[in-house]
């Protein structure tokens, strides 16, 4: 019990994920700045932002319940911490895997988005409601192809245990070693971009249009929680994809761990590149894109996987 709490709070749970998450968001900010010919922030900028927000006062819109407004950020951060703990415990020791943990992780990954929607809805602000509605529609959009894409590794490795997926890929080659695997991986990357609500899918926030949408009324520690969740997701989601499609991070030797980190960095670079080279879509365009093209491609990947390609 105490060990689980330690896993959850210190390593590989909250503290570890938060620190790494804030660091990788700095990489994201720095690269983006360089692309735009700016200098960019120093490496500790995200930590400074977080601490500063913690010290600010909390402003709550009139007529809303404090409880409903304050809890969603906490739920979202707990959920993402739990995902990270589960993933890393399994990456370090695949035997800890339990039946159907893949499904648990998929559901838990949906929680931060739900928290944003609930928080936005609780603000009682029309712009936040608008953002919440968009966020929910975006979730509907990407969840279908995301699940479809995850079916391919299930077919390939014939299991829904993450631990066995790691072991299978270590022995019989990674999922993206096949055509169907590559296609499904690409689909999953696009869905990941939307899960992170980064450009071109930053529709719910759309700063220039609805002023951060669901976050508009948030301030102080509550906002800090939401920001931290997003930083952590930037770390956790690519790790999840690496685990499921790309054979995990390897164990033991220094080189295999380094290779694992490299895999993560590749995904991070892809995310940053997409985000810096695309304009924002409208919500109907995004949904049409996900339910049309992306779902079609994901189905193709499944068909390929079923015939063994």
């Amino acid at each position: 019990m105490l060990k689980s709490v330690f896993y959850f709070v210190i390593f590989p749970g909250f503290l570890f994920t938060a620190v790494v998450g804030l660091l990788v968001s700095w990489i994201d900010r720095k690269v983006t700045a360089r692309v735009q010919w700016r200098v960019g922030p120093p490496w500790w900028q995200n930590f400074a932002d977080f601490v500063k927000l913690l010290g600010k006062e909390t402003i709550i819109p009139q007529g809303t319940s404090r409880f409903h407004f304050i809890t969603p950020p906490l739920l979202s951060i707990s959920a993402i911490t739990l995902v990270s703990t589960l993933l890393w415990v399994m990456l370090i020791n695949p035997h800890k895997s339990f039946l159907g943990d893949l499904i648990v992780v998929v559901y838990l990954l949906m929680m931060p988005a739900m928290a944003v929607v609930m928080g936005g809805a609780a603000s009682g602000n029309p712009l936040a409601s608008m953002g919440a509605s968009r966020e929910m529609k975006l979730v509907l959009g990407y969840e279908l192809p995301f699940v479809l894409a995850l079916i391919v590794p299930i077919i390939k490795t014939d299991t829904i245990r993450l631990g066995e997926m790691i072991r299978f890929q270590a022995e019989d080659g990674v999922v993206i070693g096949s055509w169907s695997g590559i296609i499904a991986f690409l689909v999953a990357i696009v869905c990941m971009q939307a899960k992170l609500t980064l450009v071109p899918f930053d529709i719910p926030e759309a700063e220039t249009e609805i002023m951060s949408g669901p976050y508009i009324e948030y301030s102080g520690p509550a906002l800090a929680m939401f920001k931290l969740t997003r930083a952590m997701m930037l770390f956790v989601l690519p790790v999840f994809l690496v685990l499921v499609f790309w054979g995990g991070f390897g164990q033991g030797s220094f080189w295999s761990v380094l290779l694992g980190i490299l895999k993560y960095v590749v995904l991070l670079v892809v995310i940053v590149l997409i985000r810096n080279t695309n304009p924002r879509l409208r919500i109907d365009q995004a949904m049409r894109f996900f339910w049309g093209l992306v779902t079609g491609v994901a189905t193709l990947a499944i068909i390929l996987a079923l015939i063994g390609a």
Partner: peptide, 11 residues
């Protein structure tokens, strides 16, 4: 982080 220090304002 002084969350007890809460202020209300209009949307």
């Amino acid at each position: 982080g002084r969350a007890s220090n809460v202020k209300e304002s209009e949307a």
